[in-house]
Design a protein around this nucleic acid. Structure first.
Lengths: 239, 239
DNA sequence: CAACATTTGTGCGTATGTATT
DNA sequence: GAATACATACGCACAAATGTT
């Protein structure tokens, strides 16, 4: 391996491996050669190859598995539409064969500063919190924490557990329709909880949405913070 | 350092340093202690500390500088509104003291498959491409590549260079108003170009928007792919 | 200006642990 | 169980950047 001036060896190697992957050199096996082989091929120490592979893993291009090797990752994304009538289940609907919504936990709690501000409640007023995980074709697709004013939406947790969908649960509570008022989107690195819940690798990207839904009269109804694995989801806003 | 079963040492150390940072232990200097000091404090090898710091750097919490140390990063985000009338300059407007738009390069070229589809042109029809960098208060805020149908928008490159804003440039070409038809949002790890253009570190997150603007008659006018540093920007969609 | 100490960056060698085949 | 392959951790050495003397 020739040393380019000023560019670390492991970076050069990462670039070359990335190029080989996109060029399809490893398509036969779908795997990158073993670290020892790469080290020999490039004439560097195995640690140097590991630095390169770590960078690629962090980019989500490859995924190393202890004892098996380093696999090349290829997956396409779900498109999640964001509009005035945003519905999770309908939105993803046709893109997956199988959708499920799991209620992880729920509870009644006093509204935090953030939740109170969004739902236009006083701080400390009771809200119902739902923690839900949504899966598409068996793979985690989102992790939502959502809050409802407690008095108006008593029983929403039971309804959600039964129906597996917020929209359906709200129907059961007599809410025929609702609107998405505002959505905030940001992106961060996966935190330990995300790694666990969304089956991500540390360093993966999580898209975070903060959404406020109102009833047809414009009264705040639901505030939801949802975390999506960025390698499996993208958003579409149609105006 | 006690070894927890099944959790790598460097992860435990990363968690402890992160906790110390959020707790404000290092606020006096705004820096993390030197690697050798941390290694001694935790009773581990310097490489182990480096793994931990690398993870934190990758999360954007710290930033290491050769010869100086590892600084704690603290910054807040610009909010970029996405709506039917989305205008970059107006959108960021009040949030920055100083906004500038730089034309990096421009040219006339045949429409690629992607560009042609979005602009509803035939593949190969001439389009004008603009590469622009936007800065807020001297810091790169976005990197846009945008395409216009060549015949209708002849001279847009000159106009943009003069005005530093797409909206103003379009005004000069007689386009008083336009609408955002659709916006796609995804998030990826920074690529080498992003690192250079947006002054990011490798491993940072880039928010990518793909937007189609039409004129008031709904005719596709501009297709833009914009890359934002995720640590400096978030999006708001108001329905 | 030069010399020096400090601090992070890179790379190699070695050893051991752990998961998979 | 044995072989293979990735994961973690330590130790050493030197390079490169920075700040100080």
């Amino acid at each position: 391996m020739e040393r380019q001036k000023g560019v670390a060896l492991w970076r050069q190697i990462a670039d070359r491996i990335r190029a080989s992957i996109t060029q399809g050199d490893y398509d036969a096996t779908g795997m990158v050669p073993a670290e020892t082989q790469l080290a020999a091929a490039f004439g560097v120490n195995r640690h140097t190859v590991r630095s390169a592979l770590a960078a690629l893993a962090q980019e989500g291009i490859v995924r190393a598995a202890q004892g098996r090797g380093t696999m090349i990752v290829r997956r396409d994304k779900f498109t999640f539409p964001i509009a005035r009538r945003t519905r999770f289940t309908e939105g993803i609907g046709a893109q997956a064969r199988d959708l499920e919504g799991l209620l992880l936990s729920s509870g009644r709690e006093p509204a935090s500063e953030d939740v109170a501000r969004r739902l236009k409640l006083a701080i400390g007023e009771p809200v119902i919190r739902l923690d839900a995980l949504r899966k598409a074709d068996g793979r985690p697709l989102s992790r939502t924490t959502t809050w409802f004013p407690a008095e108006r939406f008593h029983g929403i947790d039971v309804a959600f557990r039964r129906r597996g969908s917020i929209t359906c649960a709200l129907e059961d509570l007599g809410v025929a329709d609702y609107l998405r008022e505002v959505t905030e989107i940001s992106a961060i690195h996966a935190e330990p909880d995300d790694v666990a819940d969304l089956a991500l690798t540390p360093g993966a990207i999580v898209l975070v949405t903060r959404a406020l839904n109102t009833d047809m009269d414009g009264i705040p109804m639901q505030y939801a913070v949802t975390r999506f694995p960025a390698d499996r989801v993208e958003f579409t806003i149609t105006n």
